[in-house]
């Protein structure tokens, strides 16, 4: 295990600092047919999110008379990883769909749309560690773009423990050969982190390290939140400029 050095001279393999995010590119409203959509690149991750709704629930028996139901589908394209991924839902993607849905549910004001469904589809075109965080970031922007009432926005980032050091937003090598991987998602309201909506952990860290990881993730999430805002603003300000 120790043959692979993930940290050389205080820098990570891709030259980043420990607290540095991968380059992020966000574009809102890329799909015409969806109510809201978003294309997001987070390092080598490339994901597309589409939001439909609120709309009629099919099949009918899933309907909730008191609030909207939220459905989240995380799906990886067969070509998103080096070895071909067998298409269709598997144990991993079903789990990610569930936790991601639960991360978004408290943010969406479901009680405003009884007997309806809000469908969120996220496709991973290219995966490179932390794809669930990339998907959540994209889904959050797509939800805003769809005009769905929400308490705030969700920003998500992972922290990994690599060679005994906590690093922000791990890439593939760090994820595969690191000691721990902890994805976080936060509800951000008015530029402040209000609560944690997703926290998973793969590997082992001490309680103290987890505390520090949380602080690190908060910093990263705030940067992502700013980029998400800019992406949405850009879409509408661009429209404004075209007119002038």
């Amino acid at each position: 295990m120790e043959e692979i050095k993930l940290i050389v001279d205080g820098k990570r393999l891709d030259g980043r600092d420990f607290e540095e995010l991968r380059p992020i590119k966000i574009e809102a409203g890329v799909l015409k047919r969806a109510d809201g959509s978003c294309y997001l690149e987070m390092g080598k991750n490339k994901v597309v999110a589409a939001v439909y709704g609120p709309r009629e629930v099919h099949p009918k028996h899933l309907e909730d008379p008191s609030m909207a139901i939220v459905r989240y589908r995380y799906n990886m394209a067969p070509f998103s990883v080096e070895d071909r991924k067998r298409p269709g839902p598997d144990r991993r993607s079903i789990e990610i769909s569930k936790v991601s849905r639960e991360a978004l549910e408290p943010v969406i004001m479901k009680e405003l749309f009884p007997r309806s469904a809000i469908d969120i589809f996220v496709e991973v075109l290219q995966a490179d560690a932390g794809s669930r965080t990339a998907c959540l970031n994209a889904a959050s922007v797509a939800l805003v773009d769809a005009g769905i009432p929400m308490k705030g926005m969700v920003a998500s980032v992972a922290v990994a423990k690599v060679d005994g050091v906590l690093v922000l937003d791990p890439m593939k090598e760090e994820d595969n050969y690191g000691e721990a991987d902890i994805p976080f998602a936060f509800l951000i309201r008015n530029g402040k982190i209000e609560s944690i909506t997703l926290l998973q952990m793969d590997g082992r860290v001490t309680a103290e390290e987890l505390r520090r990881a949380l602080e690190l993730a908060k910093k990263g999430a705030m940067q992502i939140y700013q980029l998400q805002r800019e992406a949405i603003m850009r879409k509408y300000i661009k429209e404004k400029e075209v007119v002038e």
Partner: peptide, 26 residues
């Protein structure tokens, strides 16, 4: 008071409202 949708802020003496930019017909 917080905004709950993407929209334009309309702040007058009477109150604050958000003119939505997107959304379905309710």
């Amino acid at each position: 008071v917080y905004a709950r949708v993407l929209g334009l802020l309309d702040k007058t003496d009477l109150g604050v409202r958000i003119i939505p930019l997107k959304g379905r017909y309710i």
